[in-house]
């Protein structure tokens, strides 16, 4: 039994909670709203944040490997914040194979920032009896803050690793590979319970099959309000937020052409230098 399980008195070997965030479909055509504080999202279709689908797949694979090697069951629990949109991404997580879902839904949750959401996630994890691992995507497709998971780790007092590209269970906890600058990979071992933020593209998220979708209808989905989490009105939503979005703008397009003179070899060398130092794309 893992340390996390021992601490909480659970009898499952590995419990993984995955946070799924509903975000506007990245293929949507986006328009800034009237008061220029966000996009017009009322009519958009929402999907699971892409990195979170990789996190969900990583959780399912981790539990499947643990179950296969140690003959003890793992449990993947999906968690999301918001109204109907969140319920929908949770159903997708259940259809992919998660065992049950936790839906944090309350009118007071509207607005808020990464800090508020990290607090709510931490409260929900504690209320659900803890976990061995909490997974989030590395960042969200809409806000791109990349800090929710890390803040949740701090609030829970758990170890964490960010930008994780591979994870395996080992005797002492988890072995995670994380991406560093310049293509370097760091391998580290973390004692559980811990938080990992999962990088895009590390696996091929499985489809929610039709059988999975039908099976998901019978799985448990708990819905917790602000009161259930034991949080005050001032702790959640825009009131509890540390950051407020004051203005959203569409980037101005600026086409600038530079002609590089000299021999082909010289021009190529200068091009590489510009791409590396100015554009920072190589």
């Amino acid at each position: 039994m893992s340390p996390g399980a021992a601490a909480s008195g659970r009898d499952t070997l590995m419990k993984v909670i995955v946070c799924l965030r509903p975000v506007p479909d990245p293929a949507s055509r986006l328009f800034v709203n009237e008061d220029r504080t966000w996009i017009k999202d009322a009519e958009l279709s929402f999907v699971t944040n892409e990195a979170d689908t990789h996190a969900c797949e990583a959780a399912l694979e981790l539990c499947e490997r643990v179950s296969a090697s140690r003959s003890e069951a793992g449990e993947v629990v999906v968690l999301s914040i918001g109204r109907d949109r969140a319920a929908r991404v949770l159903r997708e997580g259940l259809a992919m194979g998660a065992a049950r879902a936790i839906h944090l839904a309350d009118d007071d949750f509207e607005g808020g920032d990464e800090y508020v959401r990290a607090r709510m996630i931490a409260r929900a994890v504690e209320k659900d009896g803890g976990a061995d691992v909490l997974l989030t995507g590395v960042q969200s497709d809409d806000l791109g803050g990349g800090v929710t998971g890390v803040m949740a780790a701090e609030l829970l007092g758990w170890a964490h690793a960010s930008v994780v590209v591979g994870v395996n269970a080992v005797e002492a906890g988890l072995r995670a590979r994380r991406e560093l600058e310049g293509g370097l990979i760091e391998t580290l071992e973390l004692a559980t319970p811990c938080v990992l933020t999962i990088q895009l593209g590390i696996n091929q998220p499985r489809y929610a099959t039709l059988r999975g979708i039908m099976a998901a209808k019978k799985k448990e989905m708990k819905t917790w309000s602000r009161g259930d989490l034991g949080m005050a009105a001032g702790d959640v939503g825009s009131e509890g937020a540390l950051c407020q979005v004051t203005e959203v703008r569409v980037p101005e397009r600026d086409h600038r052409v530079q002609m590089l003179s000299g021999s082909p070899a010289e021009a190529a060398a200068r091009l590489v230098e510009k791409l590396r130092l100015e554009a920072k794309v190589i």
Binding site: E92, A208, T209, L210, I213
Partner: peptide, 28 residues
Amino acid sequence: PSHRGIDFYHIEELLTDEERLVRDTVRR
């Protein structure tokens, strides 16, 4: 690219969550 889905009349609201999920799975 995949098509975005057209929902000028909020027909999405007429679908159950399961129906949307099936559609999204096949679209993906």
